[in-house]
Nucleic acid binder design. Structure first.
Lengths: 347, 347
DNA sequence: AGCATTAAATTTACTGGTTAAGTGTGCATT
DNA sequence: AATGCACACTTAACCAGTAAATTTAATGCT
């Protein structure tokens, strides 16, 4: 099928040995300038390009990176992948993207396939369902470099790149407080990943710093593993909030999916935003301005997270010595104020 | 690094030859049941998995597919990739995704890399800038199976999978007419790909079938290669429409990006939708319901397009004989009516 | 002339897996 | 006893590269 030119073909055509061709193309000092020129000219004329698999087999590396994300069909994930792709392509690494669909089992299957496929390293944003890093740890023990991005965890020691979720949540909550909201609910996911706990803690800290009592019933954790289940949980949560004697006047939502779905549900129930209830949340949708009402958001530097994670991984792959000291980089989020949190003191 | 178990390791451990191990694992009739059992047990216990590169090198195929799209950071593209990934993973093919960013040059670079990388086939949604399929044709001549998806063209003869853009555009235009709109503008891209021409033709046909005169000044083609340029072109187009003595009362927009940006711009200019101007367009955003106003859309079966395209490609890859007869499959689009095209006759 | 040095190429071995061809053993047939 | 032939396994070649070890020929030096 793939009838491309090989070293053997060039060797036969020029009446030289295969290794002379190889060395010429690798600009070895052992080969005379004239021969090199002849080989290079022939190779160029016949569009020679080395066989990735042969090279990979020989060198024990593939110049490819495995990327595991929850889902491709997710705006925020796409933006991170874009960043990963940019840096990897620059460094001529191929990326192989796989989806866990939030299932721990499927995530393990992805990792097995990637490991068997001979990737040089793994970038992973663990599934929400994930509570067990033992498989990932065993891969790391086998010498496979791993970098966590976006969704971080203390259960594995390696480079990690994510957003400063604590600060993002803190800022969003403070923004609500400064605009006159005092009864702030919080919708989050039911995972143990830091992505959830950091945001919850940021929310709590902001309340406490402003002398607002934390109310347990204002926090609801939704199941993230399935879109339909999530929608159901969110509807239930909102109905619960609205049935309380002490009703919240604002919601801070913790993830991209929760935020946009929550807005849709509030609209659907015909609540007036922000008069009856304000909303701000983590989401990167570029449609925030066109939503009804325009949505205040906590914006994450998705592209940059991807880019930096790829950079960290490639540095691990290419470092000669075993790396023992790992770092965690948290990039700043940005509060984008729009109509869904309009100042209730002035209105 | 990747110190996984090889046939050699198993052979040494069990005091057998490498080929006995290979044949055992491939369930060859030449090997006794007892030996097979011993080998399988050892392989399983030690997590043996064949080296993808060695196998690929030997067999001359890699069980990987190259996918070239305009951009990862695009909702519609993500959904198609999701479909491609589902089918490919089922058939245990790896996908390698590359981005053309709408540049013909970069697209060629992607194709070169994929070809050199030894992919078994290519799925491509060509860059809008593309007017020259010679490189793709030369790859096809070299025996590489290629399937076009979403963005199709007559310049290459192969399997093609896309949406029925003519019908989608026709239906959208008829929907506007049936709701009382008579002065329907059309915003499209300036490419020669069928994605643009089919939609323009569907629009024209719907007008003519309803005895509405086609007005040249109602059609504007925008540059798609760059986000900022597109925004600029769209603003200009809308200002132009609104400055006309004979103003349009509805816009039919031809692509995902144009549709959502156009809505944002109309909101920004404070036009009342649909009272002053209605809008319907091709887009797959799941936020259509939460937009202001909720947006009538032409929905494409993105996931199914991806899935079917992958299926067609894998059938080409695995067919023993050279395929000479190619087919083009167009999947039905669906009009989703929301507030942005509310019936002006009743309001 | 004899020997060491050097340049420029070739031979060989290796990566991990597949497979055609070859080997030795035991059993049945003639 | 000789032949045939499954059976169960091993050897060796191959895929496309890389690189260490080796060959060959030419040159330099005493």
């Amino acid at each position: 099928m793939n009838n491309s030119v090989t070293l053997k073909d060039i060797a036969q055509a020029l009446n030289l040995s295969i290794s002379t061709i190889s060395k010429s193309l690798n600009d070895s000092y052992e080969i005379s300038v004239e021969t090199k020129d002849r080989v290079l000219a022939y190779a160029k004329a016949n569009h020679y390009s080395p066989n990735r698999m042969a090279k990979g087999l020989k060198e024990g590396k593939s110049r490819s990176i495995g990327v595991v994300v929850c889902s491709l069909d997710n705006n925020f994930v796409s933006q991170m992948l874009d960043g990963i792709d940019k840096y990897s392509t620059e460094k001529s690494y191929q990326i192989i993207i796989m989806q866990s669909k939030e299932s721990h089992e499927q995530e393990s299957a992805c990792l097995s396939l990637l490991y068997a496929g001979g990737v040089d390293g793994i970038l992973i944003s663990p599934a929400c369902e994930n509570i067990d890093f033992s498989y990932l740890l065993s891969l790391q023990d086998n010498g496979l470099p791993i970098v966590l991005f976006d969704r971080l965890s203390d259960l594995i020691d390696t480079h990690k790149v994510g957003a400063d979720n604590f600060k993002g949540a803190y800022d969003a909550t403070v923004h609500l407080i400064e605009n006159g909201y005092r009864n702030i609910a919080h919708l989050n996911t039911n995972t143990i990943l830091s992505i959830a706990t950091d945001r919850l803690n940021g929310y709590k800290q902001a309340l406490s710093d402003h002398g607002i009592i934390f109310r347990d019933e204002f926090v609801r954790l939704c199941d993230y593993t399935d879109g339909l289940k999530l929608n159901h949980d969110l509807k239930e949560a909102i109905n619960f909030y609205m049935s309380l004697a002490h009703r919240p006047d604002a919601i801070f939502t913790a993830t991209d999916q929760i935020t946009t779905r929550c807005l849709a549900i509030l609209n659907n129930f015909n609540y007036k935003i922000p008069e009856e209830i304000a909303i701000i949340g983590f989401t990167n949708t570029d449609l925030a301005d066109a939503l009804s009402p325009s949505l205040s958001t906590v914006h994450q530097p998705a592209f940059e997270i991807g880019q930096l994670a790829a950079k960290q991984l490639i540095s691990l792959i290419e470092s000669r010595h075993k790396v023992e000291e790992f770092e965690t980089v948290l990039l700043d989020t940005q509060i984008k104020v729009r109509s869904s949190t309009r100042n209730r003191l002035r209105s």
